[in-house]
Amino acid sequence: MSKGVTAMTKVNPDFIKKVATSGEFNATACMNCGICTAVCPMDIELLPRKLFRYTLLGLEDKLLENTNIIYQCLLCKMCEENCTADVHIAENVRFLRSYISKEVFKL
């Protein structure tokens, strides 16, 4: 395996199950085109496409490494307004917050 290929990352099947059964997270239509990143007023390179990819792949550790970024999203929906695949980006980010609030922060 070459060095750059998601080494040291573990898939968490429980995480996939929780995401899949939630009914609230849906990013399967994302084509990874990058428009969301280009228009984000926060200029956050990671949001939202990479986070969504981590989530769909069950890479919970990678997702939680980026907790700060998940909370930096303004939920302003500029990305959603421009998304060509009609992904409910803001609701997905909110879902990730909801997951962290419950599973990590125990709120």
């Binding site: 909110r94 990730l96 909801s98 997951y99 609030s101 419950k102």
Partner: peptide, 9 residues
């Protein structure tokens, strides 16, 4: 609470 994803509250 909604924006921060604290759904139960």
């Amino acid at each position: 609470a909604y924006d921060l994803g604290v759904d139960d509250a």
